[in-house]
C-alpha cells in the first residue's frame, strides 16, 4: 500500500543555502507523524514544500498517488490537504463562521454562478454549511463565537478556529505548523486531546511540526528529525529521542531535559 503523502529526495535552496537537502518523508492514512529539529533545521521549509507554498528544486512529492510536485497550494488544498500556520493566520475582517465557510468554498456542489443568481440550491447548500460550521465550532467549544469577528478572540481561541477551519474542509492530510506555539500549558493539554480526537473522529492523517516535546511525544506515532536540512533520524518517538545523534543535534537547546520530561 502506498502512503498518503510520499516525499522523495526533496531539495530546496535559497540563494546558495540548502535549506532542505534530499529529504524523504512519508505519511500514511490516518497516521500522526511528527517533524522535529532544532531552529533553522528546515522544518518550516519542509512544511511549505509539502503544502505548495514553496516549490521544490529537486525531488518529487506525491499525494494520494498523484504527483503534485508542481501543483500550486490552492490546488493541493482542493486535493484534500489543509494546513495551519506557525503565526496564526485568519481572515481578520470576517466572522468566525465566515472563516470556516471560506475553507469549504472549493468543495461546494453549487457553482459561483448559482450563488450570484441567488438560486435556491446555492442558498440551501450555504445554509447546510453554516449548520456544519456551527457543529464543528461546538466541537471546538467555540459555538458562542460563531458570529464574532475573529479578531475579538483570544490567541488560544484563534488557534482553535484555525483547526476548525482545517477540519471543515474534510482533509485527508492536515499539516499543523507549531500548533502549540503561544499557548498556555492548560491550553496545550487541551490541544493534545483535540488533535488526537480530530484524527480518531475525522480519520485524517496529521503531519505535525512542533517544538513542544510533550506534544510530539504524546501524539506522534513516528518522528522525522531534521538537522541543517538533512534527515537525521526517523522512527518511533522513544527510539528517536534517545538516538545519540539526535541528542547531539539538540545539545544546548535543552533537549535532554525535555526528552526526559
Amino acid at each position: 500500500m502506498s502512503a498518503l503523502l510520499e516525499v522523495t529526495g526533496v531539495t530546496k535552496r535559497f540563494a546558495g543555502v540548502t535549506a532542505v537537502d534530499t529529504v524523504d518523508l512519508s505519511v500514511g492514512q490516518g497516521e500522526i507523524v511528527g517533524l522535529i529539529g532544532p531552529n533553522g533545521s528546515g522544518k518550516s521549509t519542509m512544511v511549505n514544500l509539502v503544502t505548495g507554498d514553496l516549490m521544490a528544486d529537486e525531488g518529487t512529492i506525491r499525494f494520494r498517488g498523484e504527483d503534485i510536485t508542481a501543483v500550486p497550494a490552492w490546488k493541493r488544498a482542493r486535493l484534500g490537504m489543509a494546513r495551519s500556520f506557525q503565526m496564526i493566520r485568519l481572515f481578520r475582517s470576517l466572522t468566525v463562521s465566515d472563516n470556516l465557510l471560506l475553507a469549504k468554498h472549493a468543495g461546494m456542489e453549487t457553482t459561483l454562478g448559482d450563488s450570484l443568481l441567488g438560486r435556491a440550491a446555492a442558498r440551501e447548500e450555504e445554509e447546510r454549511l453554516r449548520v456544519r460550521a456551527r457543529e464543528l465550532l461546538a466541537w471546538f467549544e467555540l459555538d458562542a463565537f460563531a458570529d464574532r469577528p475573529v479578531g475579538a478572540l483570544s490567541i488560544g481561541q484563534q488557534r482553535m478556529v484555525e483547526l476548525a477551519r482545517g477540519v471543515i474542509a474534510d482533509p485527508t492530510l492536515f499539516v499543523l505548523d507549531e500548533p502549540a506555539a503561544g499557548l498556555s500549558p492548560p491550553n496545550v493539554d487541551r490541544l493534545i486531546v483535540l488533535i488526537r480526537r480530530m484524527r480518531d473522529e475525522f480519520g485524517m492523517a496529521i503531519l505535525l511540526v512542533e517544538h513542544d516535546m510533550r506534544v510530539v511525544r504524546d501524539l506522534c506515532e513516528r518522528l522525522v528529525v531534521l538537522d541543517s536540512g538533512l534527515k537525521l533520524a526517523e522512527g518511533a518517538p522513544e527510539a528517536v529521542t534517545s538516538d545519540p545523534r539526535v541528542v547531539e543535534a539538540y545539545i544546548g537547546t535543552g533537549w535532554k531535559r525535555h526528552a526526559r520530561g
Binding site: 497550494a73 490552492w74 481578520r92 468554498h105
Partner: peptide, 11 residues
C-alpha cells in the same frame, strides 16, 4: 485580508 491564506484554503 490574506492572499496566502486564501490560497491555502483552496480559493
Amino acid at each position: 485580508d490574506d492572499e496566502t491564506l486564501a490560497g491555502a484554503v483552496g480559493l
